[in-house]
Write a protein that binds this DNA or RNA. Sequence first.
DNA 1: TTGTAGGCGTTATCAG
DNA 2: CTGATAACGCCTACAA
Lengths: 358, 358
Amino acid sequence: MAVTIKDVAKLADVAPSTVSRVIANNPRISEKTKRRVREAMDQLGYHPNFIARSLANQTTQVLGLVLPESTETFSQNPFFPMVLRGLSEGAHEKHFALQMTTGQSEDEIYEGVVQMVQGGRVDGIVLLYSKVEDRVIMYLKERNFPFVLIGKPFKYTEEITHVDNDNFRATVEVTNYLLGLGHDRIGFIGGDLDLVVTVERLLGYEKALRDSGIELRNEYVIHEEFLREGGREAINELMQVNDPPTALVVADDLMALGVLNTLDEMGISVPDDISIVSFNNIMLAEMSRPPLTTVDINIFDLGYEASKSLIQKIENPKEPVKRIIVNHNMVKRFSCSQYNASNKKIKTMAQETLSPKK
Amino acid sequence: MAVTIKDVAKLADVAPSTVSRVIANNPRISEKTKRRVREAMDQLGYHPNFIARSLANQTTQVLGLVLPESTETFSQNPFFPMVLRGLSEGAHEKHFALQMTTGQSEDEIYEGVVQMVQGGRVDGIVLLYSKVEDRVIMYLKERNFPFVLIGKPFKYTEEITHVDNDNFRATVEVTNYLLGLGHDRIGFIGGDLDLVVTVERLLGYEKALRDSGIELRNEYVIHEEFLREGGREAINELMQVNDPPTALVVADDLMALGVLNTLDEMGISVPDDISIVSFNNIMLAEMSRPPLTTVDINIFDLGYEASKSLIQKIENPKEPVKRIIVNHNMVKRFSCSQYNASNKKIKTMAQETLSPKK
DNA sequence: TTGTAGGCGTTATCAG
DNA sequence: CTGATAACGCCTACAA
């Protein structure tokens, strides 16, 4: 029904292949015929059929996105819309479209990926999360299908192109910051241990404590989902140990918000009684009471770099494996204060918001 | 390179067309050959090529999503991830994939849509927003391409399938609620007047006031973007009129949050000095101080119903135009109180959180 | 510089 | 019940 290359050819009085070449802007076509063909295209309102082109080329100009299993997390945690926006911008610049796949279980996700890949629907894949022992990664790697990971690979770090923050170092830094404030009972609230980002942050936390000669305590480390509810549950547990921490490293702002709310209900004051540092610097981090001291991880850039490097890889299959580390920076707000043995109200640290990300 | 229908045919010793029929589970193929063919498929790890199928069928099993122009809004407002989740679930059930398009300007978006449609990339389109005088809608409508709108069409309401809340009625209700609390100086903070949802809510607000015999005041109505910053700016303007409102209808929770923050900085108390009702019931609405009285519009359902009805339309082209109205319900929390002429602290309304949406 | 012909992987029509 | 064969719309040698 739609107008095809043949219709244009007929009108312009050339062969279909000529039209095809005009579309590709093949230099071996004379300007004159190009003009004539283009006029015909305009006149007929011709638009190339991507599907046919894809079939002929074996290329789709589409990137596949694999969203995390937890639809809850996806729809609640502002990380995802922001990373999507970055991905979208990077893809758009190179005229790639974005296709998403989700699933309620690991199997569904795996199936979705296989469909995308074997079905020839996409030229490459971005994984929006990094988990330990991921079938999807194994599959993609074995087939040698172009993909990039947002986060750090659990295995084969040197063989998988990925875009990540230096979460280990960032967590060492924030933990040291708390130590520097005089805290020595510092807890850690992380996401699922299946997620590599949790592991990295936990390691950074442990490293900092060990380097300061502080003994690690199992009961100070809790794992929940990256949601506000997760934060609530974590802090409930944590406050039951009989020597609760005076400072917390929380692996996600949304969790930190849950912690804040729960602490407030308990009548425990932040930062006077407990100091908190978290991660991501989502918009809410600035609005909470108190505003959170948190690590800005430049979520947009994670997405943007991911689609850029995936497209490079697609366009040049022998592009070497890359590891792109996106900057982070701690934004100091009002959720941390100097440790005070008497646990009295003490002066909140002065705000020093670092320069906002561009 | 990949294994095709022909390879399977060869191995199973049948014609390619037979394999195709087995894939389609055509009843006219004997169970015996079906088994044989399926074995061959397993053995070779065959997966059908969607692109080829699409070309042959003129159908892609992909829905196109058109995101709003403002990438800011998309990445900040929790409305979008939630509606995406609904769309995704509805599509997934029917084995449709989702493809997104965005753009920084109306033109870019329009181009994206044309590419999707004329390029044959998608079978139907969901518009995630509804604006006044939308070229995209005109284009889709004229071509008679299957699409549904999330929101109310500005024109041709009877001719465009759409999924919406009854925003007019909802706003009448909340405005009446404020009136019932004794307020008569009620302001309205809405989004861009380009967005139909703003128009609808504004009309509801005006209707309620008029029905109560209250004169409308231009200076009580402000329009900003659906973001927290928008709320901040709006309330700044509003508090400068020399008889500021004692209650506000705010068309979006995120804006309401901005209003809350700004009011707090101004030392104006909610709900003691000003009452606020807003819309959407995003997670944050429950966490703010005070928790917001807001209208739950069941965002997930908007998305879910949209993809369902679009797929119906695709599968049955003469499906009649439909208008699907998703329920709303006001969730009373702590941002409203009885009007008190002396503007003294008065008792906050008791919380009556309605049953959470399933 | 341009035209011809075959192929990309499926589906659908028509015989048999 | 199954096999040829011709599309689907475009691209790309190979010819001319």
